[in-house]
Design a protein around this nucleic acid. Structure first.
Length: 542
RNA sequence: GUCCCCAUCGUCUAGAGGCCUAGGACACUAGGUUUUCAUCCUAGUAACCGGGGUUCGAAUCCCCGUGGGGACGCCA
């Protein structure tokens, strides 16, 4: 077998979303596993919607995730001439026609599914088909398709399909006489011809289907009589996706296409295109889609599904990569947290599921926490500090920040949580009076607090054990239980109800700042009527 | 409407006819450790969509329902 060549071929018409990038991840894993090549093609032919910034965003995101591609990027827009030439050759070889158009505009080029398929390996005959024609309905036949009505299960159904779907079509009248025989007419039909037949009773033809082996879904087949000929060049002369996509896959020598589920139906058409262009179709694998919490597919409209947003929310690329790879694939054992290379080593298409998966943000968060936990502290601090840029006072000093980061790392699931560490640098804006009242409600609390605040002036805060001992001492002398002072101290110091050990906080804050925060002061305004009592209490707690 | 695909705990998944009393992970609950929180440890709740077959035996194979998704563009 020749070297595996796969590609990721996004259209840059908006920010890349996670469903999109997951396709890239699977292609990358597959290529790396097989020692193949992973190519990138930007399908930017939709000029109206493609933007340069979207291309930049795409490249940026791929770089962030470590999805390195082989070779140069192919921009589809640069291959217009080749696409047109391909269309021209298809017209010349009779595989496509220029549609006759009454409008003054140009003529679109329509690819005709081949009528004679005996030498095409991916088409097979299923058998004779017979349909009852709907009475009184006219049948219309042109080179690019037939339209007719028939009766199925007592219901009248309108059908239209390519002539290739109606192999050896015969239309029979009331007395069984042949009104039309496609075999005799097809060779002489010109694109402008339209044949109308009335009085049909019965429609008979040979039913065939196109099939291919999908490396995820197994064998897939589609009856030709459910397919239509399709436009490959628009009336304005621009090539349609199907043509451009196939031409570029040929140009890039792609021999395995791994893409989203939504292309399954396109593949039935693309294999004909490959064949008509003189090439063997590549192999295919279609990945199941991923859906959002509501069970609906992600679309570019899903505001929260952009890959860039995950970065902004403080997710690590390793975690997102890992989590996305595990959506629809598993190594087959109980491994879940796996690095890129480990996953590439274990990857196989056979182990890709064929059912859609729901994206679970909780699991991503958990995995992100795992990756954060194993980071070297300085690396963690360096990444986390970026998330303090929203602070009005500006980013803290890296050295100070690193101490806090080390303290918080095991408590952190996403880097964005670093924005909440503000209290280490600035006194908390507000303390919930109710919480404080509760924290101070035990008898002796106030005395213990004052005692500890007073001791801070002479306390050696460079030693956490000393700080802790002093807290215990203040508790003891005021008749408070061990740890009874913690809630109040924490609240006054940080404004939060939970967090790292008090002594760690005081150690970092220093004696002066700590005393400042604990000291009775700070009137707290009652914001609600029922907070009034608590506010009163606080204001006079000295 | 037509065609195609899919279906195991709430979620991601393991499962290739007997290793299944259906395993793991996230989430959740309880307990332990940490005088809070987090980490860590232990335990628990929780699933084969329904109905028919095939078979000595079905989560696994077949059929029919049901539910979900996709495709039917001169979008990609």
């Amino acid at each position: 077998m020749s070297k595996l060549r796969v590609r990721f071929a996004p259209s840059p018409t908006g920010n890349v979303h996670i469903g999109n990038i997951r396709v890239a991840i699977f292609n990358w894993l597959f290529a790396r596993n097989q020692n193949g090549e992973f190519l990138l093609r930007v399908e930017d032919t939709d000029r109206e919607r493609s933007t340069e910034s979207a291309v930049e965003a795409l490249l940026d995101v791929m770089d962030w995730l470590g999805l390195d591609h082989d070779g140069e990027i192919l921009y589809q827009s640069s291959r217009l001439d080749d696409h047109r030439a391909a269309a021209e050759s298809l017209v010349n070889s009779g595989c496509a026609i220029r549609k006759h158009s009454k409008d003054s505009g140009g003529q679109p080029v329509i690819f005709l599914l081949p009528y004679e398929c005996s030498k095409i390996p991916f088409v097979r005959t299923k058998g004779e088909a017979g349909l009852a024609a709907a009475p009184g309905k006219e049948i219309s036949i042109t080179r690019s398709g037939a339209k007719f009505s028939c009766i199925e299960n007592g219901k009248e159904i309108e059908k239209s399909c390519s002539l290739a779907g109606l192999y050896r079509l015969r239309i029979l009248g009331r007395d069984g006489e042949t009104l039309f025989d496609l075999d005799k007419r097809i060779a002489s039909m010109s694109p402008a011809d339209e044949i109308k037949i009335s009085g049909a009773q019965r429609i008979e033809y040979v039913s065939r289907e196109v099939f291919y082996h999908d490396h995820v879904k197994g064998e897939l087949a589609k009856p030709l009589d459910s397919m239509k000929d399709f436009v490959i060049v628009r009336s304005d002369g621009s090539p349609v996706f199907h043509l451009a996509n196939v031409c570029d896959d040929i140009a890039q020598d792609i021999n395995f296409i791994v893409r989203g589920d939504d292309h399954v139906e396109n593949t039935f058409r693309h294999v004909f295109l490959f064949h008509a262009l003189g090439h063997q179709p590549p192999r295919y694998a279609h990945l199941p889609m991923i859906v959002n919490q509501a069970g609906k597919p992600y679309s570019k409209r899903d505001g929260d599904a952009y890959v860039g947003d995950f970065r902004k929310k403080g997710f690590l690329p390793q975690a997102l990569f890992n989590h996305l790879a595990l959506l629809g694939w598993s190594p087959g054992d109980d491994r879940e947290k796996m690095g890129r290379d480990e996953m590439a080593g274990a990857f196989s298409l056979e182990r890709v599921k064929s059912s859609p998966g729901k994206f679970d943000i909780q699991k991503l968060i958990s995995m992100n926490g795992l990756y954060i936990a194993e980071m070297p502290p300085d690396a963690f601090a360096k990444l986390a500090i970026e998330f303090t840029s929203e602070w009005p006072e500006g980013k803290p000093s890296p050295d100070e920040f690193a101490k806090i980061a080390a303290l918080m790392q095991s408590r952190t699931k996403t880097l964005a949580q670093a924005a909440e560490w503000k209290y280490f640098f600035h006194a908390p804006h507000e303390i919930n009076p109710k919480d404080l009242e509760k924290a101070l409600s035990r008898p002796g609390s106030r005395d213990a607090l004052l005692s500890f605040a007073g001791s801070l002036a002479t306390l050696d805060v460079s030693d956490k054990a000393i700080i802790e001992a002093q807290i215990r001492a203040s508790e003891g002398s005021s008749g408070l239980q061990k740890g009874g002072l913690n809630p109040a101290l924490r609240l006054l110091l940080t404004g939060a109800k939970s967090g790292p050990p008090i002594e760690d906080i005081i150690h970092i804050l220093g004696a002066e700042k700590s005393a400042e925060r604990i000291k009775p002061r700070r009137p707290v305004a009652a914001t609600k009527k029922n907070d009034h009592r608590a506010a009163e209490f606080l204001n006079k707690y000295s």
